[in-house]
Amino acid sequence: MEAFLVSTGIVALAEFGDKTQLLSFILAAKFRKPWPIVLGILVATIFNHAFAGAIGAWVTSLMSPETLRWVLGLSFLAMAAWILVPDKFDEKDAKLAHMGVFGTTLVAFFLAEMGDKTQIATVALAAQYKAFVAVVAGTTLGMMIANVPAVLLGDRIAHKLHVKLVHGIAAAIFAVLGIATLLGAGERLGF
């Protein structure tokens, strides 16, 4: 349950102001059909995060527990720093309109998420917790928590988000995870 809750919270916080959330706003404004967009986000996220979670699970089989602890601890600290860097949205991410609303959203979201902060976080969380299903379900729910309101409420909420504060909280959580991992907290907690 901890893997699910931590994964949900971290990704929900990390996603605020992220390029995929900006993509959600743009797709909602462009198509004005929220449910195919939401479904496209869900399917793209499941595939993307399942791939990332599988990589995280695979990485754990390649390294000794001591090496993995250092790699994960440093990765979480790097994520803490990276999350403070604002994303820039590339307009080409939203220019796939010939595939319909669902298809455009699916492809644009999947591609925008490749190598993104939340995908890398999913890899690290899957490796940390060794709980593939819980991590993928949690990170997917976190993406939906951040992006569904962007699709449904659009501009009405965009200006009310304090992105720097939300990113600061997410960065602090990643930093705590990194320090705790480096100090061996995972070993004492059984993961």
Rank of each mutant, 00 (worst) to 15 (best):
M1L: 08
S7F: 11
T8L: 15
V11W: 08
E15Y: 07
E15S: 13
F16D: 00
G17E: 06
Q21V: 03
A29Y: 03
K30R: 15
K30G: 00
K33C: 00
P34H: 05
L39F: 09
F47K: 01
N48P: 00
H49K: 05
W58K: 07
V59E: 09
V59W: 10
T60S: 15
S61K: 13
E66Y: 01
T67I: 12
L68H: 03
W70A: 05
L72F: 10
G73E: 03
L77H: 09
A81F: 15
I83D: 12
L84R: 15
P86V: 06
F89V: 05
D90A: 10
H98R: 15
V101R: 13
F109G: 07
F110G: 14
F110E: 06
E113G: 13
D116H: 02
D116L: 01
L125I: 05
Y129L: 02
A137K: 09
G138H: 08
T139V: 14
T139E: 08
G142Q: 08
M143V: 06
A146V: 07
A146L: 04
V148N: 03
A150N: 06
L152H: 08
G154P: 04
G154L: 07
D155H: 10
R156P: 00
I157L: 11
A158I: 03
H162A: 01
G168A: 08
G168I: 03
I169L: 13
I169Y: 09
I169N: 07
A172R: 02
A172M: 10
G178C: 06
I179A: 14
I179F: 12
A180K: 12
T181M: 06
L182G: 11
G184T: 11
G184L: 10
A185L: 15
E187Q: 14
R188W: 15
L189V: 11
F191V: 14
